[in-house]
Design a binder for these strands. Structure first.
Lengths: 189, 189
DNA sequence: ATGGCACATGTACATCTCGACATGTCAAGA
DNA sequence: TCTTGACATGTCGAGATGTACATGTGCCAT
């Protein structure tokens, strides 16, 4: 259900084609809600059938741009204001952490270093992007501010996880490769 | 694919029934990887067919406990050590934030207050749970430490998002309902 | 003894998601 | 001219996920 509304939300910024939307997902939204092009195209068809969007224009190479309808705008606003927020996250790196005790200390240490580096890198690039927004690139329109807020959330989550990975490396004997005392690797029936 | 390995990981701690596993998911893992019982039962059947787990015992009320096999242990360790980590998250609250500019200021302010309260509450309860672990409840075995690490990640993410919601409320004019003038009281990150 | 409830497991169906494959278009350069 | 490659859209099928429904069991209080 979220994809449907995310597409409506993107189209509320202005007309766009499936290809445009797929690219937008790849760039910004992918980090909080992955979506591939097949899903996007089929969802667009459904939205059009439902009258929430309509064809705006045709361009070269079969390009078909859609535009949001009044009904679509009403629907996305209803979603934002009324629908309950689903607070269950899906984060594989954290799921894995429940099972760290099954890993060899060296593998775990390496994994945590990789994760830390990756989260730091993500945070850095998101932060520089946010900096650009703060310097006024992208304008001061409400939607630029919303993107800035979304960006900030992503920055903070990545920062938090980078710090967490570092904490885990430094705190836990299980995690350190050069800690003489690696104890039993578990798995007692 | 993650659910399969998560179940193997849980069974590596000891034998458990589908009902047990569903409960464990509801309690701890649900916040990072939601799963309902139908999916768990059918995945257990598939794992048994694949020889990665086997029936351990039958109890009252058709209770069927499974136990991980050597092959299953090898597989979950292979997953942890070798498989690439999927870093794409799925977080509806953050997806929604991209579209905050479509909301009425009052609705947005209310939503941000709710979100902040919710994240704070989650962080609090996770933190008290983590405190129990730190006081030695649950033992000092590697797997208790792994759970402690996982818990810490959840705490930090919820803290970060609570702070983010607060920052968004205080920072952005779009969000403030009763903001006569700029009275920024810090809290930037 | 029996009615209610939590325990325990499952089926059925709808929908979401994604990787693989297929098709055709326009632009630029060899 | 011909080929390459990015653009643009789509189908197909497998597998993942979730909601609703269905079934039976042991436990306990009345």
């Amino acid at each position: 259900m979220s994809l449907r509304h995310a597409l409506l939300g993107l189209l509320a910024e202005g007309p766009a084609s499936g290809y445009d939307l797929a690219r937008r997902f790849q760039e910004g939204l992918h980090s909080v809600w992955p979506a591939q092009h097949p899903q996007i195209y089929s969802e667009l068809s459904r939205l059009a059938t439902a009258g929430l969007i309509e064809v705006d224009s045709h361009g070269p190479r079969r390009r078909t741009a859609y535009r949001i309808t009044d009904a679509g705008l009403v629907e996305v606003r209803r979603w934002l204001a009324e629908d309950e927020v689903d607070h269950s996250f899906r984060m594989e790196p954290l799921l894995r952490s429940f099972f760290f005790w099954l890993m060899e200390p060296e593998d775990l240490a390496r994994r945590l270093r990789e994760e830390q580096a990756r989260f730091e890198q993500s945070a850095r690039s998101l932060r520089s992007y946010a900096g650009a927004k703060d310097r006024g690139e992208g304008g001061a329109a409400p939607r630029a501010r919303a993107q800035r807020i979304a960006l900030e959330a992503a920055v903070r989550v990545n920062d938090a996880l980078a710090e967490w990975a570092r904490w885990a490396r430094e705190t836990d004997p299980m995690a350190s490769e050069d800690f003489g005392g690696a104890e039993g690797d578990g798995a007692e029936g």
